[in-house]
Amino acid sequence: MLESVRLRYEGCCMMLMSIEEDRGIFLGSAFLVHSKGYALTAAHILPNKAELGLVPAQPAGSFVPLTMEQVTPVPVEVVRRDTEHDVALLKLIPDLGIAVPSHIMGNPAETPLGTTVMSMGFSFAHYRLHSVVSLQATLSAKVLSAHQAHILLFDTPIHPGDAGGPLINARDERIIGVVLGPFAASDLVAESTGSKPDSASSAISQAISIEYGIELMKQEGLDLL
């Protein structure tokens, strides 16, 4: 079950980099969602103003070098950004003829709690380990935030580079969320009271429901297969 999720989705994971002169600075993960060259990511990893590019992973399946010394990013622009729900829709500027399978979008509302999920991202690409790392978890909770946002909690600690990657229901092999970052209950208190209590590091991570990403795609006039 998990191998086939990994096989199916590792090709969609991209490194989002900001292009600064001759250097590529890794920002976080992103994933392809549409054959017209669209990708989704988390909004908070995007800088306010920067030249951005996507870099695919090295062909997987075998041992690959730890670091890609040089990369050739495909330039992208941010076409839609939903900062409230922390998702953003990117578009590749050149028309490359990308292949995206159909039936990749899942339904978080109908995904039962306890379902095995897999998250994928470039966990350690900040440190120049440029490999897609997959993590297995169960869907721990589906939470409605004070803002009525649909948040998915899953029980594996993720790493800084994972933000912006897909969270995939391993049973039906469809994407149900965009990985945001670690879930810290203390932040909840901090947001409402302004003072942050001591927090133990949490082994729980959070993702935003894919429905907000789908909403952005619909606004862009993209049809979902």
Binding site: A43, H44, T83, E84, A146, H147, D187, E191
Partner: peptide, 11 residues
């Protein structure tokens, strides 16, 4: 890691 950035989910 900018976990919460500009979002305010919980308030």
């Amino acid at each position: 890691p900018a976990t919460f950035g500009r979002r305010k989910f919980w308030t």
